[in-house]
Design a protein around this nucleic acid. Structure first.
Lengths: 232, 232
DNA sequence: AAACCCCATCTTGCATGGAAGATGGCACAC
DNA sequence: GTGTGCCATCTTCCATGCAAGATGGGGTTT
């Protein structure tokens, strides 16, 4: 049966709440909604062509994700990230990615190798991007590496936590992408993580993943501090 | 100014949504809502003396917490925990608590000692409860130990993750409390975690916290399997 | 001129109604 | 007896209305 043309132009699946959630999340990611901006549900509803209810319910989900704060009778506040938030985020990432790498290294050889090979693919793409000075491409490949690392661990809760954290820190990563120095160090460290996995050495994989993020944190946090970025 | 008496009898603060969220969460924790039970929002709303809207919005939050699933035109399904979920939960806990212990061990001595002392207090309570064969008290003290461990790390995101995970696994913990064997092993391991913190040895603290949870997992998962508990 | 208070306006919280979709039982055909 | 299809019923989804609370500007007082 041919379904009638979708009501709204870009509406693809499911409920209006999901649409609103996706749209608002994307808007925050892309900084269309800048942090500190105080939006009214009515206004967003109007812009999305729906009533206030689905927007309100999407806002609740976004609040649960730590992206906005719904102020009791004031509106929706887009949250900013303070340096202290970045410290928190790094500690969570250090913990989760470390365990993920360890888990993969403990898997049967076939799976380990498959994961390591995919990770090496992303690392190679990073090296190529670095070679030609393409930082955005480097950033995308880096993101793909870390996403794949988590996904291969086969733990939905870890994936969810990582996704939440990634959403929160996306803006900061974009902002600092052009300031970072240790691009080649990251590439080497990624290779070491994959090597340990392939070798089936959980302790080495855990350590390599941890040290990689610890180094990145130690590079980034002072950078943020020196630029005096109080919120981003 | 003396505020008027609260409208409803047990309403303490804030919105009806918060009340509904708290009530439903408690009901799930205490198994008043058994897993697999399919509740209708109308029915819950009636029981809580409010309209469907706040119940619906609370259900969204609970879904985000992984406690229920809102089925698109079917109702609210209380989620059950499969053994595979417990495996996932343990891996997250191993990661998060390990990092938390490490972080505390890296703090200045005064804070480290304060945290270790509080943790030792909970451990002592566990030992006392074990002595007199009081398993519920042992369980409470054990929970307090792990909560305190996370709280002292001073990372709100970690606290939130730990809280979510704890909520999800609460029923399983209650169920297996009477089956567990390694109560005294837990006590020793708790003491070792605190010792490493007090000594300012991050690597030892990380390892002790990890091993503690790994051992507990290796004790519990086979237990669940042997009882053939497919969902709990 | 400065401070204060009041109210118009804007905002969300919540209730409710209409609509669409899913389910399960019942009747009917074979 | 078995299988199939329909429909009554139940459920959420979303729009909208009303009320309460917060805010900021303007008018008044000191």
């Amino acid at each position: 049966m041919v379904r009638a043309v979708m009501r709204a132009e870009e509406e693809r699946k499911g409920s209006l709440v999901d649409d609103a959630y996706a749209a608002m999340r994307a808007a925050i990611r892309e900084s269309s909604f800048a942090p500190g901006y105080q939006a009214s549900e009515q206004e967003i509803a109007l812009r999305l062509g729906m009533s206030r209810t689905p927007v309100h319910e999407a806002a609740i989900r976004l609040q649960e994700d730590g992206l906005v704060r719904v102020l009791p009778r004031r509106g929706i506040l887009i949250l900013a990230l303070a340096p202290d938030d970045m410290r928190e985020i790094y500690d969570v990432v250090i913990a989760i990615e470390g365990r993920a790498a360890e888990l993969i290294a403990e898997m049967p050889e076939a799976e380990r190798v498959r994961a390591a090979t995919e990770l090496d693919g992303h690392t190679a793409e990073m090296a190529a991007a670095h070679e030609r000075g393409d930082r955005p491409a480097w950033g995308r490949a880096d993101g793909a590496f870390h996403t794949a690392l988590i996904e291969h661990a086969g733990n939905r809760r870890m994936s969810r936590i990582a996704q939440t954290i990634t959403d929160q820190s996306h803006r900061a990563r974009m902002l600092t992408l052009n300031l970072r120095q240790g691009l080649d160090a990251s590439i080497d460290e990624h290779r070491e993580i994959a090597r340990a996995m392939r070798a089936g050495d959980p302790a080495a994989a855990l350590n390599a993943a941890r040290q990689h993020r610890i180094r990145a944190r130690d590079e980034l946090l002072p950078l943020l501090a020196s630029y005096g970025l109080k919120h981003l």
